[in-house]
Simulated assay, not measured.
Amino acid sequence: MDTIQVIVLALIQGITEFLPISSSAHLILPKEVLGWPDQGLAFDVAVHLGTLSAVVMYFRRDIADLLQGWFASVALRRHSESSRLAWLIILATLPAGLFGLLLADFIELHLRSIAVIAATTIIFGVLLGYADRRPNPSRDLASLTIKAALIIGFAQALAMIPGTSRSGITITAALLLGFSRHDSARFSFLLSIPIIVLSASYIGLKLLLSDIAVDWASLTLGIVVSGVSAYFCIHYFLSFINRLSMLPFVIYRLVLGAGLILLII
């Protein structure tokens, strides 16, 4: 890939990773429409590291509290609101981790078509719109239960299907459970940390076991661009989420899905 392609793909990954619009649907467009080369395993690892650094940096205080609470609950049997949320994040991560181990190869071989991505982009876009229109969501993360965490966790597992959008489906599930937009997004972003670590580790292991040449300059640029763009995406999304509905994202998903359908007919 040349420098322009690296920057564009890293921007796409950084922005779409945390918006409810599906990064996989967007990353396929340059390849299918412009004939760009596949970004490859090494670049996948790089942009995942970039988005991971962004969410860790943005929620660094929350993460410090969660880790402190979790270690205190393990070592000292001292439980707190932070330790409870940390355990629920771990619990909610398990379904996606299990599905990833069992179904990753099947999905890679059979569900990465434009037809599948178009369908999931539209279907889960409509579901997001329905969830956002439910009246008076008022629950906050203090009321998160084991059952609710598992429901959101199983929803996250569905995001393995390209076009679903990890942030989109987890926010949708939280909204359907009655959580506010802000807390739905906040839990979705915190939940992204372990799953991005697992995903990057899995792709990184495949890279280590292959003989693919690594372009370190492109990878470094990809990390920086995806990280910076993801950080600002998280910041502005959380800043405006309570004043905006999900309707713009729903409309965008419907238009994108229709556009992908046009590519295959």
Rank of each mutant, 00 (worst) to 15 (best):
L11G: 00
A115Y: 11
A64C: 12
R186W: 03
A149T: 07
Y58I: 09
A155H: 03
T220Y: 08
D62R: 10
F237Y: 05
A159G: 04
I265W: 13
E108W: 10
R166C: 01
A155N: 06
S184W: 01
S165G: 07
T170R: 03
I123S: 13
A54M: 05
L263G: 10
A115V: 13
L98V: 15
R61K: 15
R181N: 08
A142V: 12
R112Q: 12
S167F: 01
A92W: 00
A213K: 13
F187V: 08
I212Y: 11
G35P: 01
I195D: 02
V55L: 03
T172P: 06
Q13M: 00
Q156T: 03
V228G: 04
D2R: 07
G97P: 06
H79E: 15
D140G: 14
F232Q: 00
I21D: 04
I152R: 03
S22I: 00
R84N: 10
P30H: 04
T93L: 05
A96S: 13
R186S: 09
G259C: 09
D65G: 14
S80Q: 09
T93C: 03
P30E: 06
L190N: 02
A173H: 05
L175E: 06
L103V: 12
V214E: 08
G204Y: 01
I123Y: 07
I63E: 11
V126C: 11
S22K: 00
I171M: 09
G40A: 06
I146F: 11
V255G: 04
I169Y: 05
T16L: 00
Q13H: 02
I122E: 02
Y252M: 06
S229L: 00
L9C: 07
F71N: 11
T164F: 04
L219F: 04
I90V: 15
L94D: 08
T3L: 13
F124W: 10
V55W: 01
P194Y: 04
A118W: 00
S199C: 05
D62I: 10
S188E: 02
L102F: 15
V225E: 00
F237M: 10
R84S: 11
A64L: 14
S113V: 09
A72N: 14
L144A: 08
I223E: 06
H110R: 14
Q68R: 14
C233W: 00
T120A: 15
I123A: 15
V197E: 02
I63N: 11
L175Y: 03
L158D: 07
L254Y: 01
A104D: 15
G35V: 08
G178P: 06
I117A: 11
G14H: 01
S53Q: 07
Y252A: 04
S226H: 01
R133A: 13
L256Q: 00
